[in-house]
Amino acid sequence: MTTAVQAHTALRTANPVSGSVLTAPPPVLTLTFVEPASLTALTLVNASGQRQLAFTPVGSALTFSSRRPPLVRGRNEIRWRALSRDGHVIEGSIIIVLRAPAR
């Protein structure tokens, strides 16, 4: 199953990139796909639970953004799901770590 999901993963980049460690939540989170796709779900999973994030635009696009994602200290997983141009459900996740500001 892992390979099948990977096979259709078409995320070109995320900002902040997956694996980033930040000291404050980013003002905006963007996902950029390799080909136009329709983002249908953006879910934030972290220590305070699981919640849907609002995003723009709705419909087919290359880049989607979500303003002020409520990230918390520690590990934040942002799961995305989209319909690709060639008619597949594609999904994946990016990880952003939030730490205390440097002492």
Binding site: S38, L39, T40, A41, G59, A82, L83
Partner: peptide, 20 residues
């Protein structure tokens, strides 16, 4: 269902507007 649910607005819009 895979995109987010039968009654999910974003999923329906995505499907209807797509070549699929």
């Amino acid at each position: 269902v895979r995109l987010g649910g039968l009654d999910d607005e974003a999923a329906r819009t995505a499907l209807i507007g797509s070549p699929l």
